[in-house]
């Protein structure tokens, strides 16, 4: 019983060190064809990326397809769990992450961030209209829902005394948990809340604007640093000719 366990452990340790030495020299990966960008995304975040009638759509999807068309690059999307995205980028499975990521110092250790396409999106606390949370002081000691990886929300909640955080993998799970009364409020960016509020009776909910905002940007694998400038230049061109604002408006993403 002990012997196979020891052997299994040795193999696991061997793999671990094999992986470490690999990650120490990124050039080991064969250079992908220069004409294609492989993009990782998580399709549970409308209006940024979601599956509609079996196909991937959303603001970031259309934005990248537009950039691809302008630069003559083909864009290939890989849809996976949010938790796997950063790892997929550092292991080279994907070259770019499109998941409305907020740049943070921790994430910047693993990936490179492009210029945010959205600087300051409002963050709100959505509560049921029957038991509304109408001021910041009322959040104290309450149970608050959030999605995994919502760093701006986490940062904000840290400052609230006694708040209990419950996390869900997708935003839809968060809304449904709020609707079922599993918590007092859902902390969410106003952009991500919009599709839900449009789909249900908005009068059932009370939305409190919090003194916090969120930026969103594309992230690039450290194995493909040249993509940062390529994407930044394309974004700047779209900002200058107004097509970025047009696209944001098309998906009902407001700047404030």
């Amino acid at each position: 019983m002990i012997k196979p366990l020891i052997a299994a452990l040795l193999i696991a340790i061997g793999l671990f060190f094999g992986m470490r030495t690999y990650f120490a020299k990124p050039e080991a990966i064969a250079a992908e064809s220069q004409r294609k960008i492989i993009v990782g995304t998580e399709s549970n975040y409308p209006p940024f990326e979601f599956i509609k009638d079996g196909t991937l759509s959303g603001f970031e999807i259309e934005l990248l397809e537009t950039i691809g068309k302008r630069l003559g690059l083909s864009i290939e999307f890989r849809d996976m769990a949010f938790d796997n995205l950063l790892f997929a980028a550092s292991s080279g499975q994907i070259q770019l992450i499109a998941a409305a990521l907020t740049p943070t110092p921790e994430r910047a250790r693993q990936v490179l961030f492009c210029e945010p396409y959205l600087q300051a999106s409002k963050i709100i606390a959505l509560s049921s209209a029957a038991r509304p949370l109408t001021s910041l002081a009322e959040l104290k000691g309450k149970t608050l829902l959030m999605t995994d990886g919502f760093t701006s929300g986490e940062e904000f909640i840290k400052g609230i005394e006694g708040a209990v955080v419950k996390k869900f993998p997708t935003i839809t799970d968060g809304f449904l948990a709020l609707k079922n009364g599993q918590a007092d409020a859902l902390v969410v960016s106003s952009t991500a809340a919009a599709p839900w509020l449009a789909a249900t009776d908005a009068a059932l909910f009370y939305s409190l604007v919090l003194p916090a905002t969120e930026a969103s940007a594309f992230a690039v694998s450290k194995l493909h640093p040249e993509l940062v400038t390529i994407i930044d230049q394309a974004l700047k061109a779209m900002k200058d000719d107004g097509s970025l604002v047009e696209l944001l408006e098309k998906w009902h993403i407001t700047k404030d």
Partner: peptide, 23 residues
Amino acid sequence: ASTIGVHEVYKESRGLLNQSYDV
């Protein structure tokens, strides 16, 4: 398999949930 992006029954049904919110 849905966690690494295979569009099988669970993955696609989650997509439907995001559109309809009908748990």
